[in-house]
Design a protein around this nucleic acid. Sequence first.
DNA 1: CGTTTTTCCGTAAACGTTTACGAGAACACA
DNA 2: TGTGTTCTCGTAAACGTTTACGGAAAAACG
Lengths: 341, 341
Amino acid sequence: MASSIHDLARHLNISIGTVSRALNGRADVNAETRQRVLEAARKLNYSPNQSGRSLRKGATHSIAFMLQPHPGDQQYGEPFFIPFLTGLQARLAEHDLDLMVVMGEPGQYQPERLRRVVETRRADAVVLANTRREDDRIDYLSKAGFPFATLGRSQSGGDAYPSLDIDFERAGEEAVDRLVARGHRRIAAIRPSLDLNFGYLFLDGYRKALKRHGIEIDPGMIADGFINETGGYQVTPRVMLSRDRPTAIIFNNDAMALGGCKALAEMGIRPGHDIAVIVIVDTPLCRYFSPALTAFRPSLEPMGRRLAEMLLASLPAFAGPEGTHIIREVWPLELVARESD
Amino acid sequence: MASSIHDLARHLNISIGTVSRALNGRADVNAETRQRVLEAARKLNYSPNQSGRSLRKGATHSIAFMLQPHPGDQQYGEPFFIPFLTGLQARLAEHDLDLMVVMGEPGQYQPERLRRVVETRRADAVVLANTRREDDRIDYLSKAGFPFATLGRSQSGGDAYPSLDIDFERAGEEAVDRLVARGHRRIAAIRPSLDLNFGYLFLDGYRKALKRHGIEIDPGMIADGFINETGGYQVTPRVMLSRDRPTAIIFNNDAMALGGCKALAEMGIRPGHDIAVIVIVDTPLCRYFSPALTAFRPSLEPMGRRLAEMLLASLPAFAGPEGTHIIREVWPLELVARESD
DNA sequence: CGTTTTTCCGTAAACGTTTACGAGAACACA
DNA sequence: TGTGTTCTCGTAAACGTTTACGGAAAAACG
């Protein structure tokens, strides 16, 4: 079944060295010989054994992606990642790289699962998502000198690694701007209580915009909750029961928004009528919720492709002749106006 | 950084053969020697190089999962797969197996992407999802003699491989039963037009139940559409405009149900009031749609774990002493009654 | 003490590649 | 013809493991 480079050599009556050189497009092989080798390879259905190649080259030709489930996210995960993975994998495949998925312990942002990948050298680099402000995984990878890139920024590890993030700060600003323009002055912000970095960025933008509009920042308008429906459901009333009720809420997460809307419904408050609601990251849930939720939408699949490029540019084995370079980018979100604000 | 088995041997002044045997728990090594080796391994932070081991053993210790995007599914993928993957990966990790993700060309159910994995021996086995009734990928893998398991059944490849499926037939029946019990006699069925196997199973169950209730099967009550919102939106009116309007619709897919409900809304027909709606596979979208859609829910994470077990049981390298065996299972769905029926 | 068995370990080959090195042949140049 | 250059290829080592084989030492047995 599996034909090796030896089979080719025997079949053609030449040495394996020549076969290998012919296959790898090296210069020091006769044009006619190369032709014969390529034909034989096709005829014998040869393709190089990955393990052999990896061993010799010291590279596995595969990239690991760490998928970090939130706790209490049992039934369905974030739809966020499928299109991102599609893009990531597509670009990696162009460079003959495989994608490995390593899943974290739900809610545990620890490098344990990563350790295996790094120590047994199962991947050449790692892509991290769901970055926290202080991220043990980033610390671990930097210290280990293992190449990686992140979807999302962090305060860990400096800026010595490629990262691609969404501009949550700007989205927070724009959300406030939009609400202020529509006459709102009491605007609440609800975000996840985890150390997830985007929660900080969002709040920065929110605060900045309020300040710009001369609106005093009321701590009672800001609440953190568990990053799922339950969290939104629990924390939204806290904001609504403050002395001076908000007339608008910005949710930093779709699941929390859904839970929050449920709480609002139970209080007889209708989004889009009695209160304005904006969600920072759009998902299909926002589109199909009733009322449909106004939200900021990322372009996930292009982001996946781009992050792959950025990672590759940082790897000596794939960087162009100009050498490696660390790229960090922040992409804007696109507002999708619907019915809730 | 990377300490090899040679480093250990040198450090302990013994041969690499002994080190390897000690590490792999073979019998012919002195207890005290083994102790010393294990300690040194820990001290030198040794872990075996995966490529070297793979090459020698002829096994990669990784399993590939083929994620097959639907066409026109750009923005968000099926949330279905994340929890399934979580379970799959969890069980595989217990056996020190990695999970590789290979994505198909959107909508193209062809073995091209698989070929690379098989031919370069990047994985020891493959897990397929989204099985079609006639599935080229299954044909290819069987013919190649490459081990695989499927999430979902198919008519291809006989039953020589492990498969785990959801009981769509029974769900179709139960949906009809439930609707009949509530007085419905005109029940429509809407399913994807692709060759996806579950569409057939669902329809079998639907027909069977109608027959059992003595209800004549009206071809005008059955419609196929593209497997996304647009498809549901386009095809639902076809069913509603038939001579004798249905009083209930069963959707075989959540996205199609959402599109269908949009079409219904535009016709002034309210699910839960003017028409009953049941969805066969539940997703968060069903829960948060308004009205919340009654749906049948699978237990994805356990299914992932189970399929991993079934696959492993079919592999000589992992089967117990009783030898390998092919397991095929069909799991029930759980009805989640909400507001739409 | 001699023989057999057991215990433990070293040796070396093998897995399938890639690549540094060197050598033979052909060719060019003087 | 002698020398240097270029083209092409074979040889063999190396990557890090695992494991079949054999042998030395120790233990068991008569």
